[in-house]
């Protein structure tokens, strides 16, 4: 009889996904990488940071190093496998934090309106007027490149966008009659925001969260590629491309494989989001 948990509602959605072939492909890709990330120590054939000097003579794919070795003689397959951990450690946490902030700000702006709304809007406007890369650069330059700072930057950039989405939906949902009914029986503002409004915004938010995980993965990769990401030698897909890109014309496989890895994960997340969107329209 009690209110269904958000988890249960999310699970219902996931079960429906089998009706969207595109969404299934996405889910498969995402689950594949999740599996790889969780079991990296058992799957990876080599230590991702071990330099095999012999391999430098011929770094191309072989029976030993399936995807070849990089310019320092490290096994690319193992580095890709361990690199997935970086993504799954940083992106979900960053997105989750951004959502916590974005939902609360958006709910308050949309529900209270007035000066709260004005204030939240001005702050969002200002943060959103920075092109994302400029913000990343400023944060990384100022605070240094580390996983924590990347998470911080993602939160900083993503939460105003989430705020806008949640605010828009709150403005619409607050006019529903069940919200008036809740007010009339004396529910607190917090109850109305979290129990009456937020659960009904979940459809678009789940889709957005999925897409946002993809964007964040891209951002982590881009920062790595630009040399603003995690400090070496820990494997990071963007960084792997950066380190080997100069050797593209001789050994394209060094860059191609990590580029394919990040692309497949993000494509998976986007297809999954599209599948979810398709389902939420049908409901």
């Amino acid at each position: 009889m009690a209110n269904d948990g958000v988890l249960a509602l999310t699970w219902n959605r996931v079960r429906l996904l089998k009706e969207s072939p595109v969404g299934m492909i996405g889910a498969f890709l995402v689950l594949f990488w999740l599996f790889v990330a969780i079991f990296a120590p058992w799957i990876a054939p080599f230590d991702p940071n071990a330099n095999n000097m012999d391999a430098l003579i011929d770094p191309t794919p072989s029976a030993v190093n399936w995807l070849g070795t990089d310019n320092s003689g490290r096994d690319i397959l193992s580095r890709i496998i361990w690199g997935s951990r970086t993504v799954f450690a940083v992106a979900p946490l960053a997105v989750l934090c951004a959502y916590a902030i974005g939902c609360m700000m958006g709910l308050m702006a949309g529900y209270y309106r007035g000066w709260v709304d004005d204030l939240v809007n001005r702050i969002s406007d200002i943060v959103l007027s920075f092109p994302a890369i400029v913000l990343y650069i400023i944060v990384i330059m100022r605070f240094g490149a580390s996983a924590n700072n990347i998470i911080l930057a993602v939160i900083f950039i993503s939460s105003p966008q989430i705020t806008r989405i949640v605010r828009g939906m709150t403005l619409e949902l607050r006019e529903r009659e069940y919200v008036a009914a809740a007010k009339m029986r004396g529910e607190s503002a917090l109850y109305i925001m979290l129990v009456e409004i937020l659960p009904n915004a979940r459809g678009p938010l789940i889709v957005d969260a999925c897409l946002r995980l993809g964007y964040t993965t891209i951002a982590i990769g881009v920062l790595g590629f630009l040399g603003l990401g995690l400090p070496p030698p820990d494997p990071d897909w963007g960084g792997m491309v950066k380190e080997t890109y100069a050797m593209m014309s001789i050994y394209p496989h060094m860059s191609l494989f990590p580029a394919a890895a990040i692309s497949s994960l993000v494509v998976g997340l986007s297809l999954l989001a599209d599948g979810m969107r398709e389902i939420s329209i049908r409901d």
Binding site: E177, Y178, A180, R185
Partner: peptide, 25 residues
Amino acid sequence: IQMVFQNPESTLNPSHTIGYVMERA
């Protein structure tokens, strides 16, 4: 003083069960 609203489609929270709505009220 309590109210019955106009629109049956928006009068009940779609995320809640009928039992929960009544119990809470």
